[in-house]
């Protein structure tokens, strides 16, 4: 890890994702494409959640940067979110990729440990 470059281990993600914070490495290691979990795609993501979809999301270090943390604009909420998943936070910060499932009813569920 140096400067602006953060390397994350996308090769360990075996499941199909709907959204990813870094789709190019996800595509390289799985051959699949996902939507970007970024500020620009915010509306599409929320619309799908509101429609009742359960979305699977891959998060790497970019989930902690301004680029992709649009879903936690309120810093308090963001703190609570990562406080709920301290191991996921630790993993993401140290080059891991964690998978979450998000739905309107179920909220955010950390699934990487079961899906790997």
């Amino acid at each position: 890890m140096f400067g602006e470059s953060r390397l994350s281990d996308w090769s360990k993600v075996k499941v199909e994702l709907d959204y990813a914070t870094n789709i190019l490495p996800y595509h390289r290691y799985t051959g699949r494409w996902a939507e970007y979990l970024r500020r620009e795609e915010y509306k599409g993501f929320i619309d799908r959640i509101e429609a009742g979809d359960t979305l699977r999301i891959g998060m790497d270090y970019y989930a902690l940067t301004n680029m992709s943390r649009v879903y936690f604009l309120d810093s308090k909420k963001e703190f609570t979110f990562f406080q709920s998943f301290p191991f996921a936070y630790y993993s993401i910060e140290n080059g891991g990729v964690e998978v979450f499932e998000a739905s309107k009813k179920g909220g955010w569920v950390w699934t990487t440990s079961t899906l790997r």
Binding site: S5, R6, L7, S8, D9, W10, S11, N22, L24, P25, H27, R28, Y29, G95
Partner: peptide
């Protein structure tokens, strides 16, 4: 040891 960075994936492209 680590997977490619996003810009490296662009280079592969």
């Amino acid at each position: 040891d680590y997977g490619l960075w996003v810009d490296e994936c662009l280079y592969v492209g």
